[in-house]
Structures are given as C-alpha cells and as structure tokens.
Amino acid sequence: MKKDIKHIRKSINDRKKLRGIPSKTDRGKVSTIMPSLPQEEEKHGFYPNFIDPSASNQSRSNAITGVILKGIFSVMLFFSIAIIWQNDAEIFEKPRQWTSNVLTEEFPFASVYQWYKDSFGTPLSFIPGNDSKVVEEAALALPVSGSVIETFQANGKGIMIAPNETTSVSALREGVVIFSGKKSDTNKTVVVQHADESTTTYGFMSSIDVHLYQIVDANQRIGEFTPTEASEMVYFAIEKNNEYVDPVQVVEVDDNP
C-alpha cells in the first residue's frame, strides 16, 4: 500500500516538473519553462497561417457566384435580343431600332466629352498624359499646307492634298481619336470623332503621334507627312450622318461664318 502511494506521488511530481511547476522536493529550486525551438519550416521563413480559412473560402465563393450571375445575365440578354429580331410584332419595332443603333454605330465619345466640359468645366482625359505637340501657328484651313490635287467630286469621299515638303498633319477640330493605325485603302490613318457626331479622316500619313481614344484639340499635331515617290499626297475626308461631305465646302463655311 505504501509503495503504491509513493509511486503515485512520484508520478505527480514528475508531471509537475514536465509542466514547469516547482514541487516540494525541489527545495527552493525554481523550474523554468524553456522556450520551444523554432521548427524546421520557421527557419526558412515559413510561418503558420493564422487567417481563418473560412473567410477566404467565402470571398472565393462570392467571386464564383458573381461570375455565374454575369454569365446568366449575358445568356438572358442574348436570347432577349434574338427574340426581338426574330419576332415581327410591331411592339418590338422600337427595341429593334435601338439594338441596331447600339451594335452598329460608334459610341459618341466626343459628345460625351463636350458634355463633361460644359457641365464641370474641366477637360476629361480618358488616358492620362498627353505628350502630343499642339501646332502653335494660326488655324489651318486644311490639315496640311499644300495644293488640292484631287477634289471631292473626283471620288465622292475626300480630297487629296499634296504638300511640297515634310509637314505636320493637324486635327481640323477638337475631338476624340477613334482609330489610329493602318487601313487597307489609306495606309497609316487617323480618324477623329467630333462633338457634332461628324468624323474627320487623315490618311497616307508618314507617322502617327496620337493613340486610340486620345483627346485632341483643334489644330493639334496628330502626325507627320513626308512626300515620297510612293506617296505624294495626304487623304482628308469628312463624314457626317453616314454621308461624306466636301471638305473644301466645310472649310469655307468655317472660315467665313
């Protein structure tokens, strides 16, 4: 019986020592808890993640739900447009016209920009930074200085201007660039949309200094033209309400209000 009691007491003292609690047999000795040594993962910069995994799972679930909802709405929109176009009922006539305009017409960037200026008085920049140079000369009658070699009556779309030397190509009026690149018929080309929903096209340029959706001022340099044997003329056209307008007539009206 005494042996059993001693054995139990010894076991209790051993457990206290393991837990760092001083026992009666230590006689004033103080036991301390040694700090745990860093694990192998901690030595290499890896630390346990204490973030609740349920939170990240919830955000991931919300993202997936959002994608699914967008997909459902896209499918619904697609089938709604298909029904409108396949049905000849009179009630669908106006929705058909609206969807046709939205899908075929260019968004009126210049009109929105003009409305923003009139409403808030501060120019709106779609893309920050405008490093293009503004032509500091007097307002040009045409985008480049030169002689009109081919008139509007010759092709029904635009005019061909022949500069005698390297010259800057300038925007006729303030607007937003809706095309900047190469076209099959006019090579390096810039198309500028204006607030009155007209567009001006500048083709056969040697270099382009503006980018898509950039806001340009009246007479601002948009590129350069250098006459060569292969390209001696600059193409210039004005289009409004899906019809081409004689640029010379428009310029004359602008110069003589």
Rank of each mutant, 00 (worst) to 15 (best):
M1I: 15
M1P: 09
K2C: 13
K2L: 12
I5P: 05
I5C: 13
R9N: 14
I12K: 11
R19I: 10
R19F: 09
G20L: 09
I21C: 11
S23C: 15
T25R: 14
T25I: 11
R27H: 11
G28M: 09
V30L: 08
T32L: 14
T32R: 10
Q39S: 11
G45H: 12
Y47Q: 12
P48C: 12
N49L: 13
F50I: 12
F50Q: 11
A55P: 08
S59E: 05
S61D: 14
T65A: 13
V67D: 07
L69G: 06
K70D: 15
K70E: 15
K70W: 12
M76W: 04
F78W: 11
S80R: 13
I81Y: 01
K94D: 14
P95V: 01
T99Q: 02
T99F: 00
S100H: 02
E106H: 10
E106P: 03
P108H: 04
P108R: 01
F109G: 00
S111Q: 06
Y113H: 09
Q114S: 10
W115L: 14
W115D: 13
Y116L: 15
K117Q: 09
S119Q: 07
F120L: 10
T122P: 10
N130W: 05
D131F: 14
S132T: 13
A138C: 12
L140K: 03
L140Q: 00
L140W: 02
A141E: 09
L142G: 07
P143R: 00
V144K: 04
V144R: 00
V144D: 03
S147F: 10
I149R: 07
E150W: 01
G156T: 13
I159W: 01
M160S: 10
I161M: 00
I161P: 01
T167M: 13
S168H: 03
V169I: 11
A171K: 03
L172D: 01
R173A: 01
R173K: 09
V177Y: 00
I178Y: 04
S180K: 03
G181M: 05
K182Q: 12
K183G: 02
N187D: 15
N187S: 14
V190I: 09
V191K: 00
T199V: 15
T200W: 02
T201N: 02
G203I: 03
F204V: 07
S206T: 06
S206E: 06
I208N: 05
I208E: 04
I208D: 06
V210R: 02
I215A: 05
I215W: 01
A218D: 02
A218N: 08
N219V: 08
N219Q: 07
Q220C: 04
Q220M: 09
I222W: 01
S231W: 00
M233P: 00
Y235N: 03
E239K: 08
K240P: 01
K240L: 09
N241L: 08
N242A: 11
V250L: 14
E252P: 05
E252H: 09
V253A: 15
N256Y: 14
P257A: 15
